[in-house]
Write a protein that binds this DNA or RNA. Structure first.
Lengths: 186, 186
DNA sequence: TTTAATCGTCAATTATATTAAACATAAACC
DNA sequence: GGTTTATGTTTAATATAATTGACGATTAAA
């Protein structure tokens, strides 16, 4: 039996499991051990056999070593319901950020909705990140440096963010864009 | 119980143990499990608990992950009796190489004995390795490029091997140096 | 050749991990 | 309220790992 203190494995397992929002029984079913085993391991009340952690690791598509070494810190949620996205609003632009509670993100992923006639402020970013996006609905005029173009549904863009640029909804009704930027500017 | 095939852990343990030329009982004593356990694990007839492999790993000053990931291929011996070192001889210089049967070495570690008046050939190495050494006995004149100096017992050196250099025994009787070079030039 | 020491293995016992089934709690639904 | 469903936990039974003690084989010393 393990010392309940310094319960490396149980802690890792619980973190990994909750990260995936799985119940003990679900992990048990997938890995081929019982829910009791999962419970006892997480509580640090047993020192599992190599067989058991292997099975459990593999059920997460991880090797044993990967299971033992992977970064298991709280990384924010994985799935987000539409209404749960963190929202901003400024001057007719509604922005929703995917994975808001994730720290050390490598990606800023946005759902952007522009009211009719609305436009983003002129973005002039010092860091040179890269950003891509696609228009889901409406007509967006994207101005990058001196270049300008109106993009419709299905059109997309890929720009370096060190060039000043702005978005403007030039169509009727709302316009919607999905965009990503790395590294994130916020 | 493990499948006797793909017995990762038992294989690793046996390789590691024999690499250190330890008996099962010796490993048992150091790690705090019994020799029977060692035997059964090596044979792949049990799937050890995490506690057990941890204890065993630690007895080799390895973490569990290190134990699971370390390169365990036959790497040559670890300990060498004085008379077992591979010896070279050229022009009054007796060289003994530590770990001669190790492959993919990162280090060339030498015991060098120079007869009175003997000197190494002028070393001019194309690759830029680094070499350090210490004089154990006698008087060695070390010439590096234009610089030259006589080193006595306890003196040492650290040079870049892309500069031509030579050793000469300028004292009475033998002179002994212990030196190391990385990456090894032979 | 003995004797003793050391090696890896094995059988029987003990300790422990794992299971199966119940338990307690909380949320959703009628 | 009662019922259902899902959660994590616990308990008693079972399976398995670990220990104890002995065995034959090997080696070295006497």
């Amino acid at each position: 039996m393990n010392n309940v203190l310094d319960n490396e494995i149980g802690t890792r397992l619980k973190a990994l499991r909750t990260m995936y929002k799985l119940s003990q029984r679900e992990v048990a079913k997938r890995s081929g051990v019982t829910n009791s085993t999962i419970s006892l391991i997480e509580q640090g009340r047993v020192s599992p056999s190599v067989d058991s952690i292997k099975k459990i690791s593999n059920s997460f598509s991880l090797s044993l070593v990967e299971f033992l070494t992977m970064n298991v810190e709280e990384d924010g949620d994985i799935f987000f319901a539409k209404e749960d996205l963190l929202s901003f609003f400024e001057k007719g632009a509604h922005l929703k950020l995917v994975g808001a509670n994730r720290k050390d993100r490598k990606l800023r992923f946005l759902h952007e909705r522009y009211e009719q006639g609305a436009s983003s402020g002129e973005h002039m970013l010092s860091c040179d990140s890269e950003e891509a996006g696609i228009i889901i609905k409406g007509q967006i005029e994207l101005t990058v440096g001196q270049a300008s173009r109106v993009l419709g549904e299905g059109d997309s863009y890929y720009i370096n963010n060190n060039i000043p640029h702005r978005f403007k909804n030039v169509g009727k009704g709302d316009a919607i864009i999905i965009s990503a930027e790395t590294p994130p500017s916020f």
